[in-house]
């Protein structure tokens, strides 16, 4: 078949991407082999396999007494405690973040203060939260109180960031309208700002609450919470049926809070 000269011309001048694609592929493959840690022998030992089997058995047939008992330190209580720790932590985060977010909004304060708040937020957010947890344990000793403080501290970063975004998106036309009526600062806050931001703020806090429930569980692994701690202890002491019960507790509490937080936020945003 004869092709039109212009067709041959554009074929010759087509963007050539083969080499780029090949080098990206090669790069990813090399990256993969670089990243896999070296290990001797099989990935999973016979005893490891045995533990997996027992954990699955524990998950299918957990210690039912612990799941269906309202006694302190049994599963429902631990779930409740986890939610409470997350609630208090979120509350602390919200209370601290509210003034910070106004300070961090470029449309309210000057850019130097806003920049300082941004730096603070980034610092808090990159701080590994186990480090904060261990520092608080040094201050108040191990236990859920250290967990509350840790969650409060780490939540502040993200909540401030989300709040600041809301404040910066705020419609300032209303404030100008209020200015022209001679409203005082408090009145402006009450009529012009709170109604606009309230739903957004609550929604952001609920979102963080969901994350905090998971964090409250994890903090148990460094003894600043109980659910994670009990799970770790149960596996360590070969009590696999107990471990199954705690795992179900984790799954349930995370699922319930995720669902509740998501549906509440949906209602807040869509009325």
């Amino acid at each position: 078949m004869n092709y039109h000269p212009e067709v041959l011309h554009s074929y010759e001048h087509r963007p050539k991407t083969l080499i780029l694609k090949l080098s990206i592929t090669l790069g990813v493959i090399l990256l993969f082999f670089w990243s896999i840690p070296s290990f001797d022998g099989p990935l999973i030992s016979e005893s490891g396999l045995d533990i997996v089997t027992r954990m699955f058995q524990g998950l299918i047939n957990p210690t039912w007494d612990k799941i269906f008992s309202l006694k302190t330190f049994h599963v429902p209580y631990l779930m409740y405690e986890t939610v409470m720790v997350a609630f208090l932590g979120t509350l602390i985060g919200t209370v601290v973040a509210t003034p910070l977010s106004f300070l961090g909004s470029r449309n309210i304060t000057n850019s130097v203060i806003a920049f300082l708040v941004t730096v603070l937020v980034v610092l808090i957010r990159t701080m590994p939260f186990f480090v904060i947890g261990l520092i608080y344990i040094r201050v108040v000793g191990p236990g859920v109180f250290a967990g509350v403080l840790t969650i409060g501290f780490t939540s502040t970063g993200m909540i401030t960031k989300l709040y600041t975004e809301s404040v910066e998106d705020m419609d300032k036309g209303i404030l100008e309208a209020l200015d022209s009526t001679g409203a005082t600062a408090v009145q402006k806050l009450r009529v012009g700002i709170v109604p606009q931001l309230f739903a957004n703020f609550v929604s952001h806090s609920l979102y963080r609450f969901d994350i905090n429930v998971r964090n409250a569980i994890i903090l148990g692994l460094i003894s600043a919470g109980r659910l994670g701690f009990e799970l770790q202890a149960a596996i360590g002491n070969f009590r696999y049926r107990d471990a199954g019960a705690y795992l179900w507790g984790i799954i349930l509490v995370v699922m319930i809070i995720e669902f509740a937080s998501a549906s509440l936020r949906k209602r807040l945003i869509y009325g």
Partner: peptide, 19 residues
């Protein structure tokens, strides 16, 4: 294949948009 495809684009007059 590529030449056929470019030829088809030429037939409908939008070869210049090929890439």
């Amino acid at each position: 294949d590529q030449l056929d495809a470019l030829e088809a684009l030429h037939k409908v007059g939008i070869l210049d948009k090929a890439f």
